[in-house]
Design a protein around this nucleic acid. Structure first.
Length: 494
RNA sequence: GGCGCUAUCGUCUAGGGGUUAGGACGGAAGAUUCUCAAUCUUCAAACCCGGGUUCGAUUCCCGGUAGCGCUACCA
């Protein structure tokens, strides 16, 4: 392993992301997409999206939508797009080619009805002896008679026969033909299996590098067999370590919930670029100590050598309550990190649609004023709703008047402070510095500490203790609202 | 069961025959501040086990164990 893969002689690399639309787009698939995309962009290659929808039974439109929705959110795009169901002719042609070379045979054994022998607890049927040896005449006769059959690859199983390939991540791979079962190429209904369709398309689309999940590592031997049988040089392979749940099992929506679905991250208010950054750090390393990386940086630094071989845990919480606790803490941190790196205008624009869902009347100008006050205080875009709520509402929701009481103070002090504020503020210009001076002076006159002066006011205008800086808050809130809320608070103290 | 892949702090990882085994998240403590957040400092925290090779293995080799994958006319 570890030698860089050169672009093919024919030119720039061509890579593909080939999801099968049998479920939503999950984070592991998203990472595969991202790595392919990064590799293509890094090497001036072509990124291809191919829907591997050969399993008609299990394909759903909902799944197709979920995949496109997820990919759209990631915002990376692709250059060419195909659907396997449109290419059946090509697949069958390849099957025919292989069959005519005698490298595949018809298997008239009825399809397995159940899944009883699924995980091979006992018998391993590597091939069907009777069928593999069937004479061509007999085979042709039964086929002509209309007897249904599956087409199986005749895996070379003589002693010493091996299949080999070099994986860019896992290195030299060798497997004895005798350990590879005679897998199916065509189903008895004439439709191609995944293995056949995938290889036929990869060959036809001139895919140069197959970058995919490690769950295909052992399938690759079969694919090499198919490519060679059909007369193609196999592309280069790079398998990615799997993403697994904290319990070590593979990500599953049923077991682990929505946290494995890409759109969940979108809906929780993740920045796509932060999510991409996070995924890149699972199973790949830039080898320096960088963690936060822009898309540009990722494109510049991405390489197959940085991919490691052990499965990576997505460290989410299994049952989970609040968003903050649900997601991998590093994903949250990276999101906050990216948010902090955004220009105020940019962040403000991204926040506005979220705010508008709940407070449609907030103006872009207002949002622009609020944004700098919360940029350092939100981890996800959706946090804007809880971090800046008091700017959006007319009337503060009810809060405990006891909150108004400052440290080492009492209700009387709170009352005093609020009354003082009411007296002083009307004549003050609502800008940071004048407010700062006026309120500190007021505190001094009252003989209370600055903090004791600020807290009652903060709670009066924000409805809670934890909030952005007081002066900038008052500035954005405006004189009228501020005074109204202070007065209201003073009354609560009676 | 068979075949294959993998194994460094709780998690993501760097490293590599001799290192105080590095970084990040998370955790703890502190500094700063009008609260919170941000920021800064400090601390705790790891080489799966057993053999070999070697002057010396966490690193190389073998075995074990564990996890994962494949073993479908799913992908």
């Amino acid at each position: 392993m570890s030698k860089p893969i050169e672009p093919t002689a024919t030119g720039a690399p061509r890579v593909r992301f080939a999801p099968s639309p049998t479920g939503f787009l999950h984070v592991g698939s998203a990472r595969t997409f991202i790595f392919n995309w990064l590799y293509a962009r890094r090497n001036n290659g072509t990124m291809i999206l191919r829907l591997d929808d050969t399993d008609v039974e299990r394909n759903t439109d909902a799944s197709v939508n979920s995949i496109f929705e997820g990919l759209k959110w990631l915002g990376l795009g692709w250059d060419e797009e195909y659907k396997q169901s449109d290419r059946g002719v090509l697949h069958r042609q390849m099957a025919q080619t292989i069959f005519e070379k005698g490298l595949a045979y018809r298997d008239f054994t009825p399809a397995h009805t159940g899944d009883s022998e699924k995980s091979g607890a006992q018998g391993t049927w590597l091939f069907n002896p009777g069928m593999r040896e069937l004479s061509r005449e007999e085979s042709d006769r039964r086929a002509a008679a209309g007897e249904p059959f599956a087409l199986r690859f005749r895996v070379p199983r003589d002693s010493g026969q091996v299949v080999r390939f070099t994986d860019a991540v896992y290195g030299e791979q060798v497997k004895a033909g005798a350990d590879i079962e005679d897998f199916a190429l065509l189903r008895s209904d004439g439709n191609p299996t995944y293995h056949l369709a995938s290889c036929a398309d990869d060959a036809d689309l001139r895919i140069s590098h197959i970058i995919r999940g490690q769950d295909h590592l052992s399938n690759t031997f079969k694919h090499v067999l198919i490519f060679e049988a059909a007369g193609y040089t196999p592309p280069k392979f790079a398998h990615l370590p799997l993403l697994v749940a904290p319990d070590g099992t593979k990500l599953s929506k049923r077991r682990h919930g929505p946290v494995v679905s890409v759109t969940t991250y979108r809906d929780a208010g993740f920045l796509a670029e932060a999510f991409i950054n996070f995924l890149c750090l699972l199973g790949w390393s830039p080898k320096d100590d960088r963690t936060k990386m822009s898309q540009q940086e990722l494109v510049e630094i991405f390489s197959l050598e940085g991919i490691n071989r052990a499965n990576a845990v997505v460290n989410f919480k299994e049952p989970a309550a609040t968003p903050d606790e649900t997601f991998d803490p590093k994903a949250i941190w990276l999101d906050a990190e990216h948010i902090r790196g955004l220009a105020i205008e940019d962040l403000s624009q991204r926040l506005l649609p979220i705010v508008h869902e709940k407070y449609p009347r907030v103006s872009p100008e207002k949002m622009l004023q609020i944004t700098p006050l919360i940029r350092e205080r939100i981890k996800l875009l959706n946090d804007v709703l809880t971090a800046a709520d008091f700017f959006f509402v007319d009337q503060l929701p009810p809060y405990d008047p006891a909150e108004l009481i400052p440290q080492k103070g009492d209700a009387a002090m709170a009352k005093l402070v609020l009354e003082k504020a009411s007296a002083v503020l009307p004549s003050i210009e609502f800008k940071h510095d004048p407010l700062d001076h006026a309120l500190r002076a007021a505190a001094q006159e009252l003989g209370v500490k600055a903090g004791q002066m600020f807290q009652p006011i903060r709670v009066a205008v924000c409805g809670r203790k934890n909030a952005p800086g007081l002066f900038e808050t008052l500035e954005v809130l405006g004189k009228e609202k501020t005074l109204r809320r202070i007065e209201h608070a003073a009354q609560k103290l009676d």
